[in-house]
Design a protein around this nucleic acid. Sequence first.
DNA 1: TATTGAAATGTTATAATATAACATTTTTGA
DNA 2: TCAAAAATGTTATATTATAACATTTCAATA
Lengths: 162, 162
Amino acid sequence: MKNKVIMPFRSAKHQHRKCQKIALDSAKKLCESQGQRLTPLRQRVLELVWQTHEPVKAYDILDQLKDEHSSSAPPTVYRALDFLQEQGLVHKIESLNAYIGCGGPDESHEHSQFLICQQCGAVAELDDIDITNLLNEKVSELGFTMQTGMVEIVGVCAICNH
Amino acid sequence: MKNKVIMPFRSAKHQHRKCQKIALDSAKKLCESQGQRLTPLRQRVLELVWQTHEPVKAYDILDQLKDEHSSSAPPTVYRALDFLQEQGLVHKIESLNAYIGCGGPDESHEHSQFLICQQCGAVAELDDIDITNLLNEKVSELGFTMQTGMVEIVGVCAICNH
DNA sequence: TATTGAAATGTTATAATATAACATTTTTGA
DNA sequence: TCAAAAATGTTATATTATAACATTTCAATA
Ligand SMILES: [Zn+2]
Ligand SMILES: [Zn+2]
Ligand SMILES: [Zn+2]
Ligand SMILES: [Zn+2]
C-alpha cells in the first residue's frame, strides 16, 4: 500500500482511447473476479462515464442512453451508477453531483482524494496514505472513529497553470 | 492562526441555548463590522440552522418559516442561506445537501474539516492547519494550485463511542 | 424631505437531482 | 424444468435548487 496518483491530470492530446480501454478491461476483470455481473447496460453506463476526465451528470448519461435504448429512465441510470459505485468502478463527486470513473479500481482504496480543476473541469484522483493517516490521527485525538472520508479540492491543475 | 476545534461534539445535556446565543451575537457583530445587513429574515434562518448541531435541510427550514411567514418560498430560504454562507456564518455539508451553523465565523477559515457522526447525526468542525498544510503540500507537488478544500469525514463521535 | 437607485423580498414557474413502488423479463441454480 | 433471485422496465413522485420578473424597503443625497 503506497501513496498513489490513481488518475493524474492528462494533457489535452493524450490518447484517451487507452484510458477507456484500460478502464473497461479492468472493470470486466474485476467484476469477473468478484462474481459480479457487468451487464451490457452497466458496461454502457461505465463507458459513458469514461467519455472524458470530467465528472458526468446522471441526466447527461440518461440523455445519451435514451438515444440508444428508448426504455431508459432515471432508475436505469441510477441503478447502474449504484452498482458501479459498489464495485468501486465509479466515484461520486459530492460537491458537483456528478460521477467519474475510478482510475484504479484494482488496488482497493477506501479513501480517495479528488482534485477538481476549476478551469478545465477535469478531476484527478489520489490515494495518498499520508493524508488518510493524518486525518485518522487527527480525528482519533478527538475520540472520533473514522469510517469514510471525502476530500474534494478545488483549484487549478498543472496543465492549466502552464 | 492555530489548530482549532471550531465546534466540538457536545453532550446531549449541554446548554444549547448558549451555543445559540453565542452564534447569534457573533453573527450580529460580524455583519455590523462588515457593513452587511443581518435582516430579520436572515437572522431567523440563522436561528433555525442553529436549532441543533445536526445539519439542517433547506426545505425543513422552509417548512418552519412558512408557519411564521406565509410568503416564504424556496428562494426565500436559499437566498438567506447564500448570504449566510458568503458571510461565513453557515457551511454547506456537500455530502448531505444540508447546512450547519459555523462555530467560529470570527477567525476566518477558508478550509474547515467536518466530522459527521453517523450515529447521532451531529457534526463537528475543525480548522486544522496541519491538514490544510498537508493537502496544500501534496497537491503542490503535482503542480496543482488549491483554492478551496472540502473535507467531510463520516464516523462515530466520542460520545456515541462511550 | 423628496427623490432615486440599490438591495432585499415576494411570487410564480421550472430545472435538476434522486428515489419509491410495483410489473415484467432474464438469469441462475436446484 | 421450475422456482427464486437478480436485473430491467415503467410510472409516479420526492427532493434540491434556480430563473425570471414584480414589489417593497432601505439608504444616500440632492
Ligand atoms: Zn484519458
Ligand atoms: Zn478510485
Ligand atoms: Zn449546542
Ligand atoms: Zn466554520
